[in-house]
Structures are given as C-alpha cells and as structure tokens.
Design a binder for these strands. Structure first.
Lengths: 241, 241
DNA sequence: TCTATCTAGTTGTCTATACCAGTATGCAGG
DNA sequence: CCTGCATACTGGTATAGACAACTAGATAGA
C-alpha cells in the first residue's frame, strides 16, 4: 500500500502500487482501472496527484487513456525493451548471460578525427582508447573500442576496465549518462575480427557505434562494438509521440 | 507568441513557443531559461500550467532541470533520432531520399507459425502477405514482407500498397500505431535477396523485424525487412529513465 | 421501433496557493 | 581572511476546486 509519512513522494508510491496491481492481475489487460476521482479517494490524495502518477505510467507504457471513457491497462510488452540500458554488462545480465572481458589495449592518445568531432573535443585534448574482447558465458560476443576524454575520467587505469566501466565511472565521478545515440549497421568480418571473435572470415557482424551524453549534453564516450551476428540481436522499441 | 483564445491548450502553445526560442537562439544551450515563476508571469498562466509545458519538453529531451538551480537548454542532438518513425516512406523522407516500391506478391494466407504468435491470432484467421522491393532514389534499398491480419484491414487491395501502407491505413481506419518493437540483426544475403537488391551474394544485410502495436496493445502488423548494408544504417536513441 | 436529447461519468485543461528541499550568495562574526 | 549562517532564489510535491470535451447509456418523443 501507500504511506503518507514515507519520505517517498505519494505519486511515486501510487505508481508502484498500480504497477503491482497490474502484475498481480488485480488490474486486468485492456480493462479500465478505477477513475482518477475514485483513485484519489482511495489513496486519500488530490486528483492532481493521482494524475501525476497515472501520467507517468502512461508515458512508460503501462496504461493508456481514452478521453470520456477511462484509463486502461496496456497489454504486456512482447519483448521487453532495453529500458535505458547502455552497458554490455547490463545487457548481458538482462539476457541471462555472464559477461567478462579481455583487455587488448589501453592507451592515452590524441583522438582520431571522427572521435574528436563526436566528443566535441578541443585541440590537444587526449582520450583513453580501451580495446577489449567482451565474452558472454565465456564465449566471444563482441570486440569493443571505447573512447573517453581523459579530462572526464582522470586517473583511469587499465586495472579498472576489466569489469563494468560504467560502474567504475559512476562510483568515482558523479556523472550520470542521460542518453545515447546508436548507429547500427551490418558488415562482414575482417580477418582481425574473425580471429578475435573465433568466427569464419566474411561472417556477418553487427556493428554498433554508441555516443553517450551526460545530462547537460556533454559527450562522454564513443563506443564502437562489433558483435557476432550469430549470437547477438539488437532489440529496440519505438514510441509514437 | 501564445493566444489565450486559441482552441489549442496553453501548455502546448507554451511548448511550441519555447522550442521556437531555442531554435532561434534566444534560449541558449546549457544556459538557464527563465524560472517557472517568471514564465508563468510572462505567459499569464499559472505555474502548474508552465510546469506541464516544461515537463513535456524535459521528457522530449529539449530541456533538463536541476533542483535549486534552474531549467537548462539541452545540447542539440548530434544525429536526430527517429522520433516515433515507423514507416519506410517517412524514414526515407527524413533521410532526404525519394521512396518508391515494386510489388512482388500480394496474398491472403493462413499465417506461418511465428507470425501467428507475434500477431496473437486465433486459429483460422488469415493475414495479408505483402512482398515488396523498396527503392530509395530509384535504387533498391530493401526487400520487405509485411503481415497484417485481414480482420484489421478488410478490403485492402494490391493497388493500395504501392505507396505508404500507413497512410492508406490511417486514412481508412482510425487506427494509430502507438509503439513498435524492432529486432535487428546482421546476416549474409542469400541468392534471392542478392538478385532483388542488386548486390553480390554474401554481401552484408541488415535485417529488421518490426512488430507494431495499436494503443490498446493489439498487434497490428509484422514487417520483415532486409536492407542493403552498404546503403542503410539504423539510428536509435536511448534515454535513461 | 427508431431517433434525438438528456444526463452522469470519464479524462483534459487550468487556477491559485502552499510548503518542502536543494543551491548560491552575501554578510556578520571570528 | 574565511567560516558559517541567513536569505532569497530555484525546482519538487501536493491541495481543492472549476469548467470543458467527450462517451455511453437511459429516456422521452415521433
């Protein structure tokens, strides 16, 4: 239930309560939930507060509204989307696989031109270049090159990059990655990739280039990943505004 | 500016006005916009109404808030995302290319097992199968197979599918596609695909399978597309909640 | 029986206000 | 000089109420 004395905001508690009622089958797919007025009586809050909770759940796709009719429970998502996922480690965890890494290179270099542009770097600013093989359940899944401005993560050492780079960064700096743009394309494995990923030359590769931005829009990193196409599919969800 | 007598809601007009001020450089990247209290005086509406406008712009990524400090203009997106885009026609338009199609097959068939499952179909329900080559600037870009339940678009004829299928559907039924899940993978062209797309056999193919849902969660269509990897890159944007 | 209207219920928009919590700045006292 | 507190800002949460727009079902009249 909800607790007026909790430090958590009421609208948040109501969101969680409604989500729980959906999960438990108390609120049923395609059927209306109680009206906003009824909910506001039930939770003993104003209608505007209930509306804030319901609006958030609508934006997250759990509910949908129809004017004059009511608010309905949306159908379950078929394939769950990657809700804000940005790291290999998290991704593999969601897929139920164990992730690990092998570090191939760890350098501090002047950025190549495309990286310099994508990270909006001034002249003379260097970047870390981290080249790794990523494993899922101990089999090669991808080769990855990560570029991060040295200025944004000073003191990063090669020993920090064996596990999740994100965990390290989020623990040691209070950055939060807010959004990322990904460009996805299909290519054919070159000899180096085939060797590192243990696949045939000319096998299919899913190439993903991700540019991550902090909340204020500062580019934080560029990651170029080459996934084995026989092991990896990218799942994405689109919402019409 | 904004107009109190307009039939459009005030919060929407304020959103548009703020977006326009960002575009015109009146509000500058990484700098604060006027506080909510100032905006409410300026637009002569209550602070809650301004908040509704600002909240929407924050959710869409134009602004970000910092408690105690203010509301800031987010940096421009580097690569624009595909904001709710779901159709080949719209996609090509955004990329500045002219789209066209060639119909290969138009059938009404009992659905294959995977389509039946993905469209949540009862037994004995048939689907349209529409097989097309999609061209961008008169060069082959993709081959596409679309599956739509006959019950959801009765009367669809082969002559309707030369242009944008979405436009036809939205004009003739009041469906709106609300969201879609896409599974993206890399493959190697088989002989048929190579022939249709005018590429070498064993060239890279970007395969995208999209399942589109209506607002109440009813699956509306499954589209299986095979894009020429030398011409097409998929762009996606992730937001951390 | 059919049709038009009424009515009660829903979400959509908006107001005016209040207090809380975090941030920055300036000023007083050491 | 600088430390710490007061203060005046910011956005965050919440209230209670009002009217508009839309829907569905009941009701009355032809």
């Amino acid at each position: 239930m909800v607790d007026k004395k909790s430090p958590l905001p009421m609208y948040y508690q109501i969101e969680e309560d409604i989500k729980q009622k959906i999960d438990s089958g108390l609120f049923i797919e395609k059927e209306t939930i109680p009206s906003e007025r009824e909910l506001s009586e039930h939770y003993e809050v104003s209608r505007m507060t209930v509306r804030q909770a319901v609006t958030n759940l609508v934006n997250e796709g759990f509910l949908y509204r129809e004017k004059g009719k009511g608010t309905f429970v949306a159908e379950k998502k078929i394939e769950q989307p990657l809700q804000g996922m940005t790291s290999f480690t998290e991704d593999m965890k969601q897929r139920g696989m164990e992730s690990s890494s092998k570090l191939l290179e760890f350098n501090i270099i002047p950025p190549p031109a495309d990286i310099k542009r994508k990270l909006s770097l001034e002249d003379n600013r260097e970047v870390y270049e981290i080249h790794r093989i990523r494993y899922a359940d101990h089999q090669p899944m991808a080769v990855e090159r990560t570029f991060i401005p040295v200025a944004l993560a000073p003191g990063l050492k090669d020993k920090n990059v064996y596990g999740s780079l994100y965990e390290y960064i989020e623990e040691n700096h209070d950055y939060t990655i807010h959004k990322a743009t990904q460009i996805i394309e299909a290519t054919i494995a070159d000899e180096e990739q085939a060797e590192l990923l243990d696949i045939a030359p000319a096998a299919a590769i899913l190439h993903i280039e991700r540019t991550s931005l902090l909340q204020d829009g500062t580019p934080f990193e560029v990651v170029k990943s080459s996934y084995r196409a026989d092991r990896y599919k990218f799942i994405s969800e689109i919402h019409r505004s």
